[in-house]
């Protein structure tokens, strides 16, 4: 029989730095009993084709994320500040090096 399901290994999020000069990027997740195993598994799972030069693993439960419910209050206020973007300023059009 398949036996009683044992406690599942916890989930880890994997971030891979694809090359020097680049940030770590979320690659996916995996299961591992401890951080050392998570690093090894991440290496075998997400860098089999030389996709990375560095790996971070973070226990999924340690990630704190913004909630979609707060999306409006977190991100909408930034939408009405066009003066933060260079394209807002038209007076300098045609003037060199500006």
């Amino acid at each position: 029989m398949s036996g009683s399901p044992t406690a599942e290994w916890p989930l880890w999020e994997v971030f891979v730095r694809p090359g020097r000069g680049l940030s770590h990027v979320h690659a996916g997740s995996l299961h591992a009993a401890d951080a050392e195993m998570a690093l090894g598994n991440a290496r075998d799972l997400y860098t089999r084709r030389g996709e990375g030069v560095s790996i971070w693993v973070v226990a999924s439960t340690d990630i704190h994320a913004s909630s979609p419910d707060e999306k409006d209050s977190l991100f909408d206020p930034a939408a009405d500040k066009p003066y933060r973007h260079p394209t807002f300023y038209t007076a300098s059009e045609g003037v060199p090096n500006l």
Partner: peptide, 22 residues
Amino acid sequence: RRRAHTEGAWVREAAMAHAAKK
């Protein structure tokens, strides 16, 4: 698949037990 999963149960349990001890 069932056999591999069943035969691996002691390994998965041990890894969790060790992590808890550590």
